[in-house]
Design a protein around this nucleic acid. Structure first.
Length: 304
RNA sequence: CGCGAGGUAGAGCAGCUCGGAAGCUCGCCGGGCUCAUAACCCGGAGGUCACAGGUUCAAAUCCUGUCCUCGCAA
């Protein structure tokens, strides 16, 4: 069975790599265009392109898929597989050949672009992965299989995402085999139970200390790769990569940095937010105690 | 040539405007104190101040070039 793979970020890479390692016949990779990124706005090629090239797979980078339907008709494939492709595939493309999708949530919960972050943001104890049919609607296709996955209390996007990708890969391979031998079954989603997660905006990552401390920690966990939770201290923007609920209470105003030589503590609405790993503008990512060694506080109040 | 910050002891920083004997916080080594501590006290080791030129009696500091790191924006 010839597979045409759609995907761009790390999640997609893990799934693609797995398919290749396990001998599935991938005939091409469709991913996003090169985009200007980083300092100097240099054009950056998605990393997944290197994986494709290493396996001598043709790479298709189309700005708008709907403009290249004829190109797709020329490709010899039997099934499309999307894994975190990010965009809705045009109807005409789906009409060429069927397509299935790897979605890291227990659909119909968390349809949309950021299901992993959604689960972390809500402090969920468990999430999951679903293999479903790719349709024109947003993640609303029939489900082949899904599996629940426990979220560890100290887990963040960086560790959860690859874990879900690997589980997704297993379920995907299982499903591919069933499709090939004709035993695949699928059931419609309970659409009335659907929930959605939106694209993340920069300002969503602001740590507003009038929020419950638990939510602040969850935000840090969800956004650790991008856009990274942050707050401001005077002119400086402090990014927070790792944090926890401090095992203490202190009487301080909301948003106030509590003086401490070794621990970076900020008062939230209902508890103390402890920063464990952070970064100031222009600096490196540092453990909190190291950060405190050199950082000169011009103000002790956040977000003013 | 998108905008900006920075490279000084193992780590994080100050010093640079106004050239003139290398500092701070931590870590490390040794000693002391305490029922106890991510506590405190005393002592110690550790630096061609990114690299290369230039100006000067004298350069971490001023000038020029190179390399590297990071924030913003996209």
């Amino acid at each position: 069975m010839k597979i045409l793979f759609f995907g761009t970020p790390v999640f997609s890479e893990i799934v693609l790599n797995g398919l290749l390692e396990n001998g599935f016949e991938v005939v091409g990779v469709v991913c996003q265009n090169d985009k200007p990124a980083g300092r100097g706005k240099k054009l950056v090629t998605p990393h997944i392109v290197e994986i494709a090239k290493a396996h001598n797979l043709p790479v298709y980078q189309f700005e708008k898929l709907s403009l290249y339907i004829e190109e797709f008709k020329k490709i010899d494939y039997d099934l499309g597989v999307t894994a975190s492709y990010g965009k809705i595939l045009p109807r005409k493309l789906l009409e060429i050949k069927p397509c299935i999708n790897v979605h890291p949530s227990m659909l119909p919960k968390y349809r949309g672009a950021t299901p992993i972050q959604g689960a972390l943001l809500n402090g969920d104890k468990k999430t999951g992965v679903t293999i479903m049919k790719t349709e024109v609607g947003m993640d609303d296709g029939d489900i082949f299989v899904q599996k629940e996955v426990e979220i560890m209390p100290d887990e963040d996007y960086l560790s959860l995402m690859p874990r879900l990708a690997k589980i997704g890969l297993e379920l995907l391979m299982e499903t591919l085999i069933k499709i090939e031998n004709g035993t695949a079954k699928r059931t419609p989603q309970e659409h009335e139970k659907a929930t959605f997660v939106k694209l993340i905006q920069k300002e969503d990552a602001l740590l507003d200390f009038s929020m419950p401390v638990e939510s602040l920690v969850n935000k840090t966990r969800a956004y650790v790769v991008s856009p990274v939770a942050f707050f401001t201290l005077g002119e400086d923007r402090i990014k927070v990569y790792k944090a926890k609920v401090a095992d203490m209470t202190i009487d301080a105003n909301v948003g106030e940095i509590i003086p401490n030589k070794k621990r970076f503590l900020v008062q939230a609405s209902d508890g103390v937010f402890e920063i464990l790993k952070c970064q100031a503008s222009g600096g490196k990512v540092l453990d909190a105690n190291v950060f405190l060694n050199g950082y000169r506080f011009k103000t002790r109040v956040a977000n003013v």
